[in-house]
């Protein structure tokens, strides 16, 4: 069988120019054999979800270091529903306090990684969760 690599969109949203973290994650996922689509900075939630739909991505990783996570994460969740793409694994990372992370996970963000999270943990999470999404349907 001709196995297709997992495809993941790594995104930066809103007025947040700190992309080192996003680039480090993008590289780690690439080195784990995934096809990573990087959106660049200053994306609107609608653009991020549109990208994931067109690229047939298995997952979206959103990095936010601006403090606007309680606004932007829910907007992406909303857009995923609006574009009938709720099955895409949505996860994120950034400087996000534990109580906010808890709330975001209740809203439908699959996982939140904070500074200090080992790269391997993130790679394992994406491999497992996006892999699960592949098995039933495709």
């Amino acid at each position: 069988m001709n196995e297709r690599p997992l495809r993941v969109v790594i995104a930066k949203a809103g007025l947040d120019g700190h992309d080192r973290g996003a680039k480090v994650i993008a590289r780690a996922l690439r080195d784990a054999g995934m096809e990573v689509i990087y959106t660049g900075l200053f994306q609107a939630p609608e653009q991020i979800v549109q990208t994931a739909v067109q690229e047939d991505a298995d997952g979206i990783g959103l990095s936010i270091l601006s403090g606007a996570h309680m606004t932007l994460f829910p907007l992406v969740v909303e857009q995923l529903k609006a574009q009938d793409a709720g099955d895409i694994v949505f996860f994120g990372g950034g400087t996000i306090p534990p109580e906010d992370a808890k709330r975001l996970k209740e809203l439908g963000v699959r996982e939140i990684f904070t500074p200090g999270a080992p790269l391997q943990t993130i790679v394992d999470f994406v491999t497992r969760e996006c892999g699960k999404r592949r098995t039933p349907a495709a």
């Binding site: 690599p5 993008a26 590289r27 996922l29 690439r30 080195d31 784990a32 054999g33 995934m34 096809e35 990573v36 689509i37 990087y38 959106t39 660049g40 994306q43 609107a44 609608e46 653009q47 549109q50 990208t51 690229e55």
Partner: peptide, 15 residues
């Protein structure tokens, strides 16, 4: 794996 970054230049057409 691959890092696909060409979209960055096409951002104005995303939506």
């Amino acid at each position: 794996g691959a890092l696909l970054g060409d979209r960055i230049r096409l951002v104005e057409h995303f939506t």
